[in-house]
Simulated scan of single mutants.
Amino acid sequence: MFTRTDDKITTAQTVVIISCYMLGSGVLTLPRTLTERVKTADGWISLIVGGLIVLLAGICIVKLCQQYPGKTIYQFVQEIVGSWIGSCLSTLMILYFVAISAFQIRVMAEVTKLYLLEGTPMWVIVMSFMWIGLYLITSGINSMARLFEIILPITIVVLLICMFLSSEIFEIDNIRPVLGEGILPVLRGLRSTVFVFIGYEIMFILPAFMQHPKKGVKAMIIGTSIPLVMYMITYIMVVGALSVDGVVRSTWPTLDLMRSFEITGLLFERFEFFLLVIWIMQIFSTFTITFYAASMGLAQLSKRNIQPIMYGLIPIIFIVALLPKNMNEVFDFGDFIGSVSIYLFGLLPVVLLLITKIFKKGALKEDG
């Protein structure tokens, strides 16, 4: 079967999947990308506003999916806009998830090569992670959810400990004055925050596998709130310790923060290694869920078995991941994906929901 309707997940597992998806490479890159655009220390305000916008978009997606219980976006979009347009939209979403998978696996490989496996060919690292991810997703979404339930608490604890220990070099003046240059810099930063909150679109798929799909809005709110709090703490601590100028000059400012202090007398005096290892696991989580979403889309669109499609996507994601020649092109690729997500998953759910409500489609039609 191309759809495993018996592969159910709990509401708590849904929350974990959303949070793990959003907590991808953002913690490593967010302080730099956001500060570059805002050019002040007010990026944390952009995070709050951006988080609320993404949350509203996510709730809209959940409300739309609740009109078509047991179905993913790939299955019900054709019922809303017709077969031809629906197939085109599904194809765009599949390409989007493939692009996200490739971006995440490339960032994971770049960080691994720079800090852990210096001298190792990039393609070796990418391929190794991809085969591990393939092994995970072949077992279905429930297996992924159980792994994420282990990764997320460890990630939160390690990040909070690292941020707490870095407080000794934190300077409150580095994040002052608040709104010193007005609201315009905050608005400029909204685009960057949308990319780090990429993950809400997975709710186009998860409600079909939830044991209690009516709790989808609750899962969306909690699942978005966890990354929002983590991102805010990270941004404030990194900018407060390194300053706006220092953050902009750094490729991986969060890791540089961990390397900028030592705690003498403890068993471990340097903590960037722990953050690095945990965040490789976190980026791996994002890669696997997008890999699975792309595979499911192709399977449901073509009405074929999902297993061969998973293997078939491996070379495609591999090629796309290695296309950027350097880190600047990798970040440009990420910005492009963020721009696409605004239109594909920001505006589209609203339009589809309006069509569903106006023409009384989905569950409403069945009830009538």
Results as ranks from 00 to 15, higher is better:
G133N: 07
D42T: 10
D367L: 11
P213R: 01
I59W: 12
E110G: 03
V107C: 11
M22S: 10
N174D: 06
L160D: 01
R146I: 10
F195W: 09
W44R: 09
T138D: 12
M144S: 14
T264N: 14
N142H: 14
P177L: 12
L28K: 07
G362N: 09
K303H: 13
S295C: 09
S285D: 12
L136E: 12
V81F: 11
P349H: 03
I141Q: 06
M122P: 09
I48Q: 07
T35Y: 06
V178R: 04
L55N: 04
P121M: 13
D42E: 09
G180E: 11
P153R: 05
K365C: 14
Q307S: 01
K325G: 14
S167F: 12
V277W: 08
Q282S: 15
V107Q: 05
I319G: 03
L257A: 11
L228P: 00
T3A: 14
M220R: 02
K8H: 01
I48D: 00
I175L: 12
L92D: 00
L114Y: 05
G297Q: 03
G86M: 11
I156F: 03
E171C: 07
I94P: 02
L64I: 08
W252T: 01
I105R: 15
Q282D: 15
R106L: 04
L313Y: 04
R37L: 13
L134I: 07
V15A: 06
L52Y: 07
E181H: 06
M130T: 15
L56N: 08
M203V: 13
G58M: 02
A363Q: 12
K361N: 01
P177H: 08
F209L: 04
L255C: 12
I221R: 00
K303G: 05
M327Q: 15
I151F: 12
F261A: 02
L184E: 13
V126E: 01
I319N: 10
V194Q: 07
S83E: 11
L348H: 00
T10W: 05
D367I: 14
H212A: 10
L28W: 07
I169A: 09
F336K: 08
K365T: 09
P213C: 04
R270L: 05
V16L: 01
F287S: 07
I202A: 10
V54Q: 04
V229I: 05
V350Q: 09
P227F: 03
T138R: 15
D335C: 11
M127Y: 07
L159P: 00
I205W: 11
L159F: 13
F195K: 02
M122D: 09
S87F: 14
S87C: 14
T11L: 08
E149T: 05
L184G: 13
F336T: 15
W44C: 05
G297R: 08
F287E: 11
Y21M: 14
T40F: 00
T11A: 14
T254C: 05
N174R: 04
F76W: 15
L116W: 02
F271V: 13
V15Q: 01
T11H: 06
L114V: 08
M130Y: 03
Y21A: 13
M258R: 05
T72L: 09
L179R: 03
I161S: 01
V126G: 06
F318M: 15
